[in-house]
């Protein structure tokens, strides 16, 4: 009886991984085709160069060949880990990714951590006090933060804290004089640049997690086992823990699904704050028709999406014994 679910489990894992791989491949293929169907090529913007020279560059890179031919070549290179050359940065795509991806991951992981912790704390607090003034105020606040577009929120923050008040830098990761600063000032400078983009992303993420945690906590709070816990003589804190432990299940799922959507949010937030990360680079690459880089950005995004949903599965199994088979 014990061995059978296990075998089913491992075959399910293999199936999930294959499925994930397929999703990444499909997204990359779609990006590849769409990029090439879009008007122009990587050299269209170089109006300083004569047209025949640009055509020659294009031909050198093979961009004049039919799309299927290009596709097969690109796929063959990709299979050995070669993402090609970035036409915009004039460097290998992998090098560009190595530079920009950590910057986004820094912003994202901080924002995600802060969002999860704050959102769960706020939502769990609300869930046991549904209908009170505090709960209504927080619900209104989170609905507001949730419905505001992130780019608008970003612009608002820049207007207020960077332009009107002048407290914080409006853009970039570091100041221009960064190289000449002592170590302590460098750290402060980096943190100051982090505040606004992080706030924009965190406000959004927090409102989302808070709304989720509130509703799951409210549901758990009305379950009979909460009364059982109280009848056992637990403190209110202990009783809340009982409810929260079951209310965690949907939030954990949300965590995995939020993974890629924060990347999506980062595309806007990075553009507004000129944060030289993945999102910012992806926008640049598309605008510059940097085929290889744009497709690589889509691959990164889809890998994050599928690993997010895999992570959600793993976490859910960890916190909910009913789904762990």
């Amino acid at each position: 009886m014990l061995s059978r679910p296990k075998r089913a489990h491992s075959s399910r894992v293999v199936a999930r991984l294959l499925q994930s791989l397929f999703v990444v491949w499909a997204a990359a293929t779609a990006a590849f085709v769409l990029m090439r169907l879009a008007p122009g090529d990587p050299y269209t913007t170089r109006i300083d160069v004569p047209a025949n020279e640009r055509a020659q560059w294009s031909a050198q890179r093979g961009f004049d060949q039919p799309i299927p031919v290009q596709y097969v070549k690109w796929l063959r290179n990709l299979a050995v880990g070669d993402f090609g050359q970035s036409s915009y940065f004039k460097r290998p795509v992998l090098d560009v990714l190595r530079d920009v991806l950590p910057r986004t991951l820094l912003l994202m992981s901080l924002a995600l951590t802060a969002s999860v912790l704050l959102g769960m704390a706020i939502g769990a607090w609300q869930g046991t006090r549904v209908g009170t003034t505090g709960d209504s105020l927080l619900s209104t606040g989170s609905l507001l933060a949730y419905s505001v577009p992130e780019f608008w929120l970003g612009i608002l923050l820049v207007q207020l804290f960077a332009q009107s008040l002048g407290w914080l830098p409006a853009s970039g990761m570091v100041s221009t004089e960064y190289e000449y600063l002592p170590l302590s000032a460098r750290i402060v400078d980096r943190l100051r640049h982090l505040v606004l983009p992080l706030t924009a992303l965190t406000l959004l993420g927090t409102s989302l997690f808070a709304r989720f945690q509130r509703s799951s906590m409210r549901d758990a709070w009305n379950e009979p086992f909460v009364q059982t816990a109280r009848a056992k003589g637990l403190t209110e804190r202990g009783v809340r823990w009982h409810a929260w432990r079951t209310a965690l299940v949907p939030v954990v799922t949300m965590f995995g699904l939020m993974f890629p959507s924060l990347l999506g949010g980062a595309v806007f937030v990075e553009s507004i704050f000129s944060w030289p990360g993945m999102g910012h680079t992806a926008v640049l690459a598309v605008n510059a028709r940097d085929y290889n880089l744009a497709v690589a950005a889509v691959i990164v995004g889809s890998v994050m999406t599928v690993s997010g949903s895999l992570l959600a599965d793993v976490l859910q199994r960890a916190v909910d014994p009913r789904t762990a088979a």
Binding site: P224, A231, T246
Partner: peptide, 14 residues
């Protein structure tokens, strides 16, 4: 102490 009616829902599922 109290024994509740619904052993299904009166126990914490996780």
């Amino acid at each position: 102490a109290m024994i509740f009616q619904e052993p299904m829902t009166a126990l914490n599922p996780v």
